[in-house]
Structures are given as C-alpha cells and as structure tokens.
Design a protein around this nucleic acid. Structure first.
Ligand SMILES: Cc1cn([C@H]2C[C@H](O)[C@@H](COP(=O)(O)OP(=O)(O)OP(=O)(O)O)O2)c(=O)[nH]c1=O
Ligand SMILES: [Mg+2]
Length: 1100
DNA sequence: GGGTTGTACTGCG
DNA sequence: TTCCACGCAGTACAACCC
C-alpha cells in the first residue's frame, strides 16, 4: 500500500517541493506491494522516483530467501489484520457504546492532564555518520556516498538519497540504484567522538539533556529560553548555529514542541538543516496531530501502521479519536489503547526521565554480540563461532563490570527464520567458560542447522560490584582498585582466560580481571592471570573501552586460539588454582557457593522447597537473619545471593532437595568440603517431607556463632572457610560475627586437603590434570581432586557433590563423593535406542552401579567424562562410575543394568553417563567436532581456520570497529582476533577482504539508546484518573509506566497476537520422532539423547 | 491470582 | 557470481510454579 505519510507536512509548513499526495491508485505491478523499511518516507527523499526505486528493489530481491521471508511475515501481518477485522465486525452495538463511553472518559482525563508549560527541543543530526565522514573528506559532499558496505548500508548522504539510497538498504541494491555510489566503511570511533562534541553544545542549552542515541537528544529548553529571553524559534536557531560552528560543520535539525514526542516528530519536518516549532497551544497541537500520519508517531512502524489502516481504516492520528475509537479499545490492549489515545491528543512526556546511578546500576538491560556469515552447517564450525561470540561478550561484560543470569542464543537460519533460545542460569556469571556450555547446549538442541547468523545475549544484569562489596569480600581483604591500578596485562580478552576450575565465575575472579577489586594480598597472583589485562585496562572509563581496551593487548600474552584453549582449559584452570587461585577460591566461596539449585526457586509442590519462610521455623538461630515473607531472598530477583551473604556474612552452600514435584523423594544434601555425603536415606532424621516442609534446610542450619552451628539434620551446611579457622576479624554490624577466615592460601589448602583426605583411597592426581573441559562439552563433568567440579551445561561450579539420579525413578541416589573402589566392570550390552527419553532409559548397557547408594567411588578415570576429555592423567574423579552390571535403586525398587546418568544439581540437566566415555575428540576443531558427517559437508575453511587462528586477540569485527577499529586501522595493522577473522572469512558478501572490518553494526557498549515510548509519552506524572478498571500497566510501579509502543497487541485474542500463532505445537524430535513441547522440555529431551548416545558410544 | 521463564515480534538508530 | 547489520528496548502470551 502506498505510504500515506510519505510526504506529509503540517498544513502551516509550506512544502519545499511539490510533493504529491499519496496515490491510492490500484497497483498492477507487484513491486508496489513490496514494503520495506527503506521505502518509507525519509528526509531527502523528495523528488525521488519512488516508482523506479520500488521496482529496482523488488527486482533485486524477488528471488531471494530474504524476500520469501518478508513475504512470510507479510502474510502473517495480513492474517493478523484479518482476525482483527473479524473481531471488529463481531462487536455489538451495546458493547461498542459502553466502550465508547469509557474511552471518552479516559480521553477527558488525559485532556485534563495536558501540560503545555514546557518547551522541548529535539535535535537530530543530519545523516550523521555520512556527515562525519564528509567533514573529514569534503570531496565526499558532492558525491553520492553511503556508509556501510555491499551487505548493508547504515546511512547515506543527501546526494545518494536522491537516488533512493537509504539507511538499512543492502549495499548491492543501493549500488543498483546509484552505480556511482561511494561506500565508506563504518568508523564508530569517529562517530562517538563527533557525538561528544555535539553533546557539549546540547549541554549548553540543557545540562540535563537526554541522549536518544549517538545523534539525537531531547532538551528541555524552557529555562534556557526564559533566561535568555529567547523564543523557541530563536533557541532552535541558536542551537543549530552553535552546533554548526563548533562541530566542524556538522548540521542538525530541530523540532520544538510542548512535549518530547511532538518535538521528535517536528525535528523531521524541516530536515536537513532546519527546524520546526509547534506552538504550545492546544489548538495548534490538535491541528498538527489531526492530519499527522500514524506512521510519523514514534513506535508506530511498518506493521502497526498497516494494522491500524487495515483493521480500522485509521491512517492519521486524528482518526484515532474518531468514530473508531471504541473499537480501538476493544481490539487492543490497555497499554496500546492509552498510547493511541495520547497520540490522537498530541500528548507526550513533559518531564525528564529520572537518572540512574550508573555506578550501581548496570545502565542497561542486556548486552549482546551477533554475527552474520555465509551459510554454515557444520556443527563444529558453529560451535567454534559460539565460542568466539561468548568470548567477545565476556570481554564486553568485563569491561563494564557486569554479570548476568539470563543467557540467550540467537540463531538466524539461511531462510532468515530467527530462533532464540534462552536459559536462566543458577547464578550470575560473566566469564566465557561459564557461558559457553549453556550456549552449546542450546545450540546442540537445535541441530541440524543451516545458519546465517549467530548471537549471544546476556540479560538479568547487575554490577559486579554489588557482589564484591559483600561483607565477605570485605572480610577477605578485598579492596577496590582504580581502573588503572590493575597489574599489567598478562593476557588478552577477559573472557578468554582459563577460568573454569577455580571458579572463575565468581566475583573475585572477575573483580581481579576488571580491576575493580582484588584480594589485597594477591595482586601479584592476579597479575599472573591471563585474563586480567583487558578488563583492567578498560575498566571504568568509557573512553578506555572505546579505545578498544579489551582488544589491544600484547599478542604474546593473548589467550590461545579457541581450539587450544578449549583443549587446555582444565590444565589452565589448574594453573590458576596453583597460582592466583587463592583469591578465586575465596571469592568463589562468597559467590559461587551461593548457586541455588533450581529446586530452590522452582521447587516442587508439596514440600514447599526452599521458598518456605525460614523465619517460620522454630529454632532459628539468633543472629542469623530470618528470611521472612517480607524479605524473601528467593524473590529478590538478582540479589538473592547477596542478600543471603549480606545477612550471613559468610559463604554457605545449600542444596534443596525439595526440588520438583516429582522429586518428593529427594532429600536435602548439604555438604561441606571434605565431609562425606550423608545420603538422606542413610542419614539421621526423618524423610524428605520434614525438610522440605520446614524450610530448615536454610534457616535452621545457618551457622551462627551466637547460638553455635545448628545441629545438622539431614542436611549439612557449613562455611567452607570455617574449617581453617584463624585469620581476620569478623565484620561487625551485621548482626553477628563471623568465624575469622584463615589466610586465603590456607583456606585453599585446607579445602583441597580435606577433600584429599576424604578421598584418600583414591589416587591423588596432579591437580593440574584434574579439571578438564571436554572439548565437546557434553561429556560434562570437570572434576578436581579437591572436590570441585563444574557442570558444563549450566554454570554450576563448586564442591557440591554431584548427585546421581536413577533413570527409572528419577530420584537422586548417591553422590560423586569418592567411594570405595568399585569392582572391575565388565561392559555388557548395548543400550537400545528407540525408546523415548523416559523409557529409553532402559537402554540397557553395562551399567552397573556397584553402589546404588551412598557415596560412590570412582577410580577409573574413564568413569569421569571429564577425565575422558582431559588430556592428561585422569583425576580422581568425583564422578561415580560403578562397574557392576546391575544395580538397585534404593529409592525406588528398580534393579537392573540401566545406565545411570549424571545430573547436575544446579541446573538439573543430564550431563553425561556413567558409562565409559567415548574417546576424547580432538580439540574444538570446527570441521571435526561432532557429527562428522555434517561437518564434512558444510565445512568451509573458515571455521577451521577460525579455530586455529586465534592467534592473538579476542576481538571481533564490528566491535573492533566501534571500539578500537579506527585505531587499529590507523596503525595499519587491523587487529584480527578469532571472531574477527572468522567473520572476515565467512561473512556472506559483507566484507571485501579479510582485513576489512565489519561494514555494518552498531556502536554497542555506549549508553543504550532509549527506544521505547517510555519517557516519550506522557508519564505517570499526571494523576491518572481513569474511568476504567485495571489500568495495571499504567499504575504498576513504573513511574514512566508508559505504554511502550510496541505493545500494540490485540487484547485477549486467543491466537497469538504476536503472530506467535502456529508456533504452539510440539516439535518433532529428529532422533526418535517424539513430539516434544518446545522450551525446557525440548532441551531436556535432547539432553537425554545426547546422554544416551554417549552411553552407547561408550559401550560400543 | 500472583510471579517466573521462555519465545516471538515490533521498533529504533 | 554473489548479495539484506547489529545492538538495544519493550510487550504479549503460554506454560508453569506457588
Ligand atoms: C536508521 C539507521 C541508522 N543508523 C545509524 C546511521 C545514522 O547516521 C545514525 C542516525 O540515524 P538517523 O538519524 O535515523 O539517520 P541519519 O542521521 O543518518 O539521517 P537523517 O538526516 O535522516 O537524520 O544511525 C544505522 O546504523 N542503522 C539504521 O537502520
Ligand atoms: Mg539523524
């Protein structure tokens, strides 16, 4: 359909060119129906032969996968519109009348709250990126020029726009439109620098101006105008003058209006290099809005415009308040309705958004890294790429000193279908080795895949400092360090560091890494950590980060390439343990040991699990904070760890066996290092019920030196550091004193010592060889002789025992504690396949669990998957591997030879089997890893080389650009890290040469751009006297409880308004044909297949 | 009925 | 000959838990 608003101008503003009205004439030509984001109206499009542009775009697209995907999406939109039309047609008169009345009341309330007292100015730089390049190379001003590359254009100068070249247009199409087009690669460092200059000017008019991205800002110029006796018109002219004169000739366009939303709309009217002032009167506003195309309103995009037009015939803001307004209220959500009504009234936010404390808040909700490349099918190659992405993400997170809990893998198939798969981790993490395993798990569950893009994203963020400032951290002598005070870089990318074993994910490690905190006594040790450099250099100052702190490191000290790094992870971890591991260990206790198993928060039904209020438990030791309903640690989202720590002032470990509803028979197993696991069914005390119901797993057992440690019941809990005794004084002021911790080194020694003692029967292997990250990840358990292990599927690390779960009854049956030497194990049958996960379990096999109960012993290194994956001598595996052919579960009555599978306590996922592991695959070589058949066919050299070439830096193309790209380029030797090289070698038509940096992207890392309506539209500042009930979206918390624009969903439609329709169905498992619900069930299902295939492989 | 998790979709620059 | 980015924010909804 024609772009109704393509050439809209307010009635008062004389059109600069004779732009025709939208022609609703029929479209005999197919190209006229192909809507793209860049066929929308945009400044500089006047006089463009839109018909021709449309035709060329269509011709260049019509046979592509991208086009087909666009068609698919368009069909979904059409279907959505059709549903809305049907619903609309079904509305009865009474219904409509009632809705109309309430809407009118609401409109009246909104009108009553209208605030015309402020003067808002929105400034937007003209073709910003292009202008920056033009300022540097004036000859470009007269040539058609685009910023970006053949794959994608970020923006174009006005000469190029005359040809129809636009933002978000693929370069090859632009080239077709304008063969003379000059491409200039992105250079985010330049844009950032230019933006700083511009902001300095903005600050002159409004010290509190709000950035809307690199190139735009909102200024409340009310005070400025009053102080200088200026009219809005003069203020806008003054701002533009100052920008032009002090920013190297860069120009901007401005809009002035009584609220932010209108100001933004106005800034586009006289673009480029112009301004438009909307008078602050209700009449002027209403007149302006009356004919304003809906598409001009921020947050109404291509789809919403179509929906409004198609379903209700609404094309202008004025029509939003017209006869259709009652239907509007009945078809759309509450939030959407409010948003539409405000648009119709010309309302918007009139006050500054509150500032947040960036030192405490992460300053963002999520952080991500993604890449597009040529079609990639080989799983090994994909996993190698995942590793690079994770490394890059970890580096970025380190530089911002943030950690997160919600990890998302994004996949775009070659048909442009996008999939996201996410997990909520048991704790906050930020190190690459903590993130990769879950990412790989998500990735593997989707195979087979033919990809064109992969991305990783972390959300649920918090500042690392939050954890580091804990009482324990202080107790351990941690002290804050300035960004520059960190030891010299010993390695490169933060996330690349070997981290797994000493619990890298903990606060201490990261703190040392990013220079925020470091153990007072171990800075030297920290200096030796390969991961310390990048973050340290860049920590703190944004400018540092922009300078590419995490990329610019000495090649010699860089992390090894992915392949070798993966292979040597365990050993490196060991080294850390030996050297600087002390600090990690100590901190790990503070943080890592807080990992709360899913059962704690997602606990089962009856027994209540961990959310039971400990305060209700009689006998709660004094001095230990009781977690009542008003302070539900499990409810406090991101801070449960800290809350506990805050109140306990010491590390603790807890395992809540009350897990899922189906796990009633599981018991609490609370362990402290070196202490033999006491299986619930063997220990003193009652059954599972009491623990689960009482909640004393937490509260009743918390150590407290006022009352003394609570008597262990079936669960044991103890501060790991208590064993060593002696040391610093406890912290005061937390309601209790703490057992003085020993020096860190003693703690570590005590820990490993105690474990070693407990495992004395088993050979004491070289710790350096103990922890091993299996290259392929799945084989799962990384064990150390000191009892620490890491789940490779989730991020759990620590010394909790791993529990073995019976395949038949699904109950925990034992631990991975060292057990008596098992009898030699004859390998018997081969597991059958066929059966589904739950039944397939009986795939027989020679699995014996010699000891079906109690502590098990594993001596055969091969028994540990980790051991198998470890190149070196195998550690005394903590994994129980028994060798009998039959065993009996003591929870249920199962007796047989089903293999036992290992399940991680923390993530509750199957991680491997007790069957002898398959031969260790080679290190993560893209071509060879896993699924050789797939690898063989899809494999290009790219991935392979990527794996092998991680020669120097953990960098990546786009970010190399946005942070250090310019610098590197200037130096004549562009940094080429693993991701960057992989990208360069595989980028599908996006990069010319391997040396070329990414041509498109976004300047991540800077302050996130506010893209929602929150803050744009009128906020909760007004008394929202609504006649309607349940305006939850408005009142609930969010002071800016603005409807975020995208919220425009249909209300109550049974079908996914979000076009989620059709997706609800089960997925068919390619392995067994089972229909499995997507989501966690699917993951679990694929876990089983992996585990079983592992068992089979081993048996064979 | 409330909260949490996971997913798709929309929009912005 | 090929060939359509990246990073961020937000809403809605289903499924599940308490
Ligand atoms: C729209 C868009 C912009 N950008 C970048 C490049 C732009 O120069 C910068 C600012 O975006 P815009 O302000 O939307 O565009 P512009 O400044 O280039 O042109 P105009 O004169 O119309 O304001 O953001 C992208 O990278 N991708 C996009 O899709
Ligand atoms: Mg601009």
């Amino acid at each position: 359909m024609a772009q109704a608003g393509a050439s809209w101008r307010p009635a008062e503003a004389p059109p600069p060119s004779p732009s025709g009205a939208p022609d609703p004439s029929p479209n005999p030509a197919p190209w006229q129906d192909y809507q793209t984001v860049f066929t929308n109206a945009k400044a500089g499009m006047e006089g463009v032969d839109k018909e021709k542009v449309q035709r060329i775009v269509y011709e260049m697209s019509k046979d592509s996968a991208h086009f087909r995907n666009e068609q698919r999406k368009q069909a979904a939109t059409a279907a959505r519109i059709e549903r809305l039309r049907e619903r609309s047609a079904g509305l009865g008169p009474a219904e409509l009348a009632a809705a109309g009345r309430s809407i009118d009341e609401r409109v009246a309330a909104l009108e009553a709250g209208r605030d015309l007292s402020r003067l808002w100015l929105h400034a937007d730089m003209d073709c910003f990126y292009a202008a920056v390049h033009e300022a540097e190379r004036p000859e470009l001003k007269t040539q058609p020029m685009a910023v970006g590359g053949i794959g994608m254009i970020s923006t174009a100068n006005y000469v190029a726009r005359k040809y129809g070249v636009r933002s978000a247009m693929p370069g090859f199409i632009a080239k077709k439109l304008c063969p003379q087009l000059v491409f200039v690669p992105l250079d985010f460092a330049k844009y950032t620098a230019a933006a700083e200059g511009v902001r300095a000017v903005f600050r002159q008019l409004d010290p509190d101006f709000e950035s809307g991205g690199l190139d735009e800002a909102y200024l409340d110029v009310t005070d400025f105008c009053a102080a200088h006796g200026m009219t809005p018109e003069e203020a806008a002219a003054e701002l533009r003058r100052r920008v032009r004169e002090s920013c190297g000739g860069l120009t901007c366009s401005c809009g002035v209006a009584p609220n932010k939303t209108l100001a933004k709309i106005c800034s586009d009217i006289n673009k480029p290099d112009g301004h438009y002032v909307l008078p602050s009167s209700r009449e002027a506003v209403m007149r302006f809005v009356d004919t304003l195309p809906t598409r001009k309103v921020p947050c109404i995009g291509k789809v919403t415009e179509q929906v409004l037009k198609g379903a209700l015939g609404i094309a202008t803001c004025g029509q939003l308040l017209g006869p259709q307004r009652a239907r509007l209220g009945l078809l759309f959500s509450e939030a959407a309705l409010g948003f539409f009504l405000e648009a119709g009234l010309g309302l918007g936010a009139t006050r500054h958004a509150p500032k947040t404390d960036r030192a405490v808040e992460p300053g963002r909700k999520g952080i991500s890294c993604e890449r597009t490349f040529r079609a990639m099918r080989a799983p090994g190659e994909q996993e190698a790429l995942a590793g690079q992405l994770v490394e890059s993400l970890a580096a970025d997170m380190a530089s911002e000193e943030i950690e997160g809990r919600n990890l998302t893998l994004k996949l775009k198939l070659t048909n442009f279908e996008v999939r996201t798969r996410s997990v909520t981790l048991p704790r906050h993490v930020r190190a690459a080795p903590d993130m990769l395993p879950p990412v790989l798990r998500l990735l593997r569950a989707e195979q087979p895949l033919e990809l064109r893009l992969m991305g990783v994203r972390m959300a649920g963020l918090r500042k690392v400092h939050a954890a580091s400032r804990s009482p324990l951290a202080r107790l351990l002598g941690l002290r804050p360090q300035g960004p520059g005070s960190a030891p010299p870089a010993a390695g490169a990318g933060t996330g690349a560091g070997p981290t797994t074993t000493p619990d890298p994910g903990d606060s201490a490690t990261g703190a040392a890494v990013n220079g925020g905190f470091a153990p007072a006594s171990s800075s030297a040790a920290a200096a030796g950590r390969a991961i310390s450099a990048g973050g340290a250099g860049g920590g703190g100052r944004p400018s540092s980060r922009v300078a590419g702190a995490h990329r610019t490191t000495e090649p010699g000290s860089s992390p090894p390439p992915l392949a070798s790094r993966t292979a040597s992870r365990g050993a490196q971890g060991r080294n850390e343990d030996k050297t600087s591991g002390h600090s990690s260990r100590a901190l790990r206790l503070a943080d890592g040991s807080f990992a709360v198993p899913p059962g704690l928060t997602a606990g089962g039904a009856a027994g209540g699990g961990s959310k039971a209020e400990p305060s209700s438990v009689p006998g709660t030791p004094r001095g230990v904070h009781a977690y009542g309903a008003d302070e539900p640690f499990a409810h406090d989202e991101d801070n449960e760890d800290d809350d506990l720590e805050e109140h306990l002032g010491m590390p603790y470990e807890v395992y809540d066996g009350g897990g899922g509803a189906s796990d009633d028979d599981e018991d609490c197993v609370m362990l402290e290092d070196g202490e033999p696991l006491l299986p619930p069914w063997e220990g003193p005390g009652g059954g599972a019920a009491d623990t689960a119901a009482s909640g004393d797993a937490l509260c009743g057992l918390l150590p407290c030196d006022e009352t003394g440690p609570a008597p262990p019941k079936r669960a044991r809990l103890g501060p790991a550091c208590a064993a060593a005794g002696g040391g610093a004084p406890g912290t005061a002021g937390h309601g209790h004193s703490l057992p003085p911790p020993p020096p860190l080194c003693q703690q570590a020694a005590a820990q490993s010592g105690s474990v070693a003692a407990a495992a004395s029967e088993t050979p004491a292997p070289d710790p350096a060889a103990a922890a091993g990250g299996p290259p392929n990840g799945f084989a799962a358990v990384a064990c150390a002789s000191n009892g620490h292990w890491a789940c490779l599927l989730c991020t759990f690390k620590g010394n909790r025992r791993q529990m073995l779960r019976c395949l038949a009854c699904d109950s925990l049956r034992g631990s991975t504690l060292p057990a008596p030497p098992p009898p030699p194990l004859p390998s018997t049958g081969e597991p059958t396949v066929g059966s589904g996960p739950n039944e397939g379990a009986d795939a027989g096999g020679s699995r014996p669990a010699a000891a079906s109960r109690g502590p098990h012993r594993g001596q055969d290194p091969r028994n540990s998957a980790a051991a198998a994956a470890t190149a070196g001598p195998s550690p005394a595996s903590a994994t129980t591997v028994t060798t009998a052919t039959t065993w009996t579960c003591r929870i249920c009555t199962y007796s047989g030879n089903r293999r036992q599978l290992l399940r991680c306590e923390a993530c509750d996922n199957l991680r491997g089997s007790t069957a002898p592991p398959p031969p260790a695959p080679p290190p993560l070589q893209p071509q060879q890893q896993q699924r050789p058949q797939a690898a063989a066919e899809g494999g290009t050299r790219g991935g392979s080389s990527a794996g092998a070439m991680g020669s120097s830096r953990a960098t990546k193309a786009p970010k190399a650009q946005r942070s250090g790209g310019a610098k590197a380029a200037a130096a004549g030797a562009p940094a080429a890290g693993p991701l960057e090289r992989l990208w360069a070698s595989r980028s599908g038509g996006q990069t010319g040469t391997a040396a070329a940096p990414a041509e498109t992207g976004a300047p991540a890392g800077a302050v996130p751009v506010r893209t929602s309506l929150a803050g744009w539209h009128s906020g909760g500042s007004r008394p929202a006297a609504r006649g309607l009930e349940g305006h939850t979206a408005r009142t609930a918390g969010a002071r800016t409880g603005e409807p975020a624009a995208a919220a425009l969903r249909v209300k109550g439609a049974g079908e996914g308004l979000v076009s989620s329709g059709g997706a609800g169905g089960d997925r068919r498992c390619p392995e067994c044909g089972a229909q499995v619900a997507p989501g966690p069930a699917w993951l679990e299902h694929t876990d089983w297949h992996l585990a079983l295939s592992l068992s089979r492989g081993a048996a064979a």
